[in-house]
Structure formats: structure tokens, C-alpha cells
């Protein structure tokens, strides 16, 4: 095995690790958007996807692309997502707040369905 082959192997492993972490964040963010109780809390879960998950996946793809013009384009996409996603989140949050959407501010801790049956 030559030195170049070892280099490619290391690059692939780093790329797979970044991709797997990013996918965990994206899937967890999507699950959080489904599970959390009200709009303002769901917004936080969507933010997880849009910041770290997206950036990790873009970096993984940059490693796969190597030192080419394609990598520069991927970097540009990542930069764009990094700039626009918090702005969009703030715009949605501000619009909801101005429209009089009241955030849930008490503790949200539902019991397991079986426990609730036990109480009743």
C-alpha cells in the first residue's frame, strides 16, 4: 500500500465521519420539529439542522471533492446557508411574535401514556 492510497483512505474515513455526524444532527432536528410542543420550541430544533448539520455535510462533501473549483462552489453554498438560515429563522420568529403568537412559557413534561392511564 503506497502513501497515496493511505492518504485517500484517511480522507474517506474523515469524510464518512463528518457525514455521519451531520446526518445524526439533521435527523435529530427533524424529529425534534415533530416532537416539541409549540412553534417557538420547534424553531430551535429546526435551527440544529440548519447550522451544524448542514455545515458538517458540506465539509464532508468538500473533502470528497478535493482541491478543485467544485470545492470552492461547495464552500460558497455552505457560506450562503450559514448566512441565510439564521436570518430566515429570525424572520419567522419575529413575524410570529408580531402576529401575537404566544409562546409556551411553562414547563412541558408530559407523562408516558401508560402512567397517565394509571393516574386516571
Amino acid at each position: 500500500m503506497t502513501l497515496i492510497e493511505i492518504g485517500i483512505l484517511v480522507r474517506d474515513i474523515a469524510s464518512i465521519a463528518l457525514m455521519a455526524t451531520g446526518l445524526v444532527f439533521v435527523l435529530a432536528g427533524a424529529l425534534g420539529v415533530l416532537r416539541l410542543p409549540d412553534f417557538f420550541t420547534r424553531m430551535h430544533a429546526a435551527g440544529v439542522t440548519d447550522t451544524l448539520g448542514a455545515e458538517l455535510i458540506v465539509f464532508s462533501l468538500i473533502l470528497q471533492a478535493g482541491f478543485t473549483l467544485l470545492a470552492a462552489k461547495l464552500l460558497l453554498v455552505g457560506f450562503l446557508l450559514f448566512l441565510t438560515s439564521p436570518t430566515a429563522t429570525h424572520a419567522v420568529a419575529n413575524a410570529a411574535h408580531r402576529a401575537g403568537e404566544k409562546p409556551l412559557l411553562s414547563r412541558f413534561h408530559p407523562k408516558h401514556p401508560r402512567d397517565r392511564e394509571g393516574d386516571a
Binding site: T41, P103, L104, L105, R107, F108, P110
Partner: peptide, 8 residues
Amino acid sequence: EIDVTPRL
């Protein structure tokens, strides 16, 4: 079991 206490 989700346990959050949102704050403003």
C-alpha cells in the same frame, strides 16, 4: 420524555 421549560 420531552422536558423543556422555554423562557423569553
